[in-house]
Simulated assay, not measured.
Amino acid sequence: MTSWYDADGHLSEDMIADFRQTLLTWYDESGRTHLPWRIDKEPYHIWVSEIMLQQTQVETVIPYYERFLAELPRVQDLAEADEEVLLKLWSGLGYYSRVRNMQKAAQQVMADFDGQFPSTSQALQTLAGIGPYTAAAIASISFDEVVPTLDGNMFRVFARLLKIDADIAQPKTRKIFYGIILPIVDPERPGDFNQAVMDLGTSLMSAKTETFAESPFARFNLSYQDGTELTFPVKSKKVKQVQKFYAAIISEKDGLLAYQQRPKTGLLANFWTYPLVEFDSWDAIYDGVFEQFKDAKQLNITPVTHIFTHQKWQVMLVQVADNLDTWTYLSDDAYEALPQTTLQLKLQAALKENL
């Protein structure tokens, strides 16, 4: 049975060298080197891709990435862009605070770094919206800094390879993994090493995939060797998702529909949606909304559901006769020109289906 450790209990230099060579050879032959953000090492390109890839699958990101760079090819363009342009380019990706922070960071790059990205992970973390993972990705890929990119894939891969049983849901565990993985990162190709681990974690060592005997990584995988692979990584349960219940008000005046701008803070900040009224439960909508509005009519039996990280929204479409001064009435063309959220697109589809 292969071991990562020498007689003194330290990571074996020979094993590390063997693993690096095996990993990078596999990456060169089987990795996703064709992805558009892997064509070059331009930090702006790497940064845009990494922010887009947060909470979003690769296949979804590709057209957004290409459209974003076609419209805003330089960090200066992003720094100077109108917010509506940004939100329109981001529409459908969700988590809109990401793109707002990107613009803040672009403005910092222009003002504080003379238009050039900082070259170390530590300095990159001074930019808005850039945390340890994104900073490490940019620094290792664009500037060859030897630093691991600790994300879910890297946690899973090395937890299984080395049987690390620290709970990855605990913030303190990051330091444990960082200390173990840092000396394993290839000093000649740190960016490729990190991207190879990511590809490994989404393919041969994905969450539900068990290592097969012919895998080039079987001999490095201590958890595979003793049959405990799927017990790693150790992760405590997530906090239960909070449910929210809303009535989306459909009000018409002179052929125009009612909209309302969301508050400046919170989920969907500053976006325009149908007026949303919150209730304590789905059943409470039936009592409350019909008391508040004239001639209220429920349009959809099945709620429109939208998932945020820690919240699940369920929305009922309610057609009313009221016209309130706090609502803004817009034509379809006028509204289409505004940035739209995925939730609003769902509501529009449900309205079309139920009218």
Rank of each mutant, 00 (worst) to 15 (best):
residue 1 M to K: 11
residue 3 S to P: 07
residue 3 S to V: 03
residue 4 W to E: 04
residue 13 E to H: 14
residue 14 D to A: 14
residue 34 H to G: 13
residue 39 I to Q: 15
residue 41 K to D: 03
residue 50 E to Y: 02
residue 50 E to A: 06
residue 53 L to P: 04
residue 54 Q to V: 01
residue 55 Q to H: 13
residue 57 Q to R: 09
residue 67 R to Q: 11
residue 81 A to N: 10
residue 101 N to A: 04
residue 101 N to K: 13
residue 106 A to T: 00
residue 106 A to S: 12
residue 121 S to E: 01
residue 140 S to E: 01
residue 144 D to F: 15
residue 146 V to F: 11
residue 151 D to G: 10
residue 154 M to F: 02
residue 158 F to A: 07
residue 161 L to A: 02
residue 165 D to S: 14
residue 175 K to W: 13
residue 179 G to F: 06
residue 180 I to W: 13
residue 182 L to C: 10
residue 188 E to F: 15
residue 189 R to C: 10
residue 192 D to Q: 13
residue 196 A to N: 01
residue 204 L to Q: 15
residue 209 T to N: 09
residue 216 P to E: 09
residue 217 F to M: 05
residue 218 A to W: 00
residue 220 F to D: 00
residue 231 T to C: 13
residue 235 K to I: 15
residue 236 S to E: 01
residue 245 F to W: 04
residue 248 A to V: 01
residue 250 I to H: 14
residue 250 I to T: 11
residue 254 D to R: 05
residue 255 G to P: 02
residue 256 L to F: 09
residue 261 Q to N: 02
residue 280 D to F: 12
residue 287 D to Y: 08
residue 290 F to V: 15
residue 291 E to G: 10
residue 303 P to M: 05
residue 309 T to C: 09
residue 313 W to Y: 05
residue 318 V to P: 03
residue 320 V to S: 06
residue 321 A to V: 01
residue 321 A to Y: 12
residue 321 A to L: 01
residue 322 D to N: 04
residue 325 D to W: 09
residue 330 L to S: 07
residue 335 Y to V: 09
residue 341 T to W: 01
residue 342 T to M: 14
residue 343 L to T: 03
residue 345 L to I: 15
residue 355 L to Q: 14
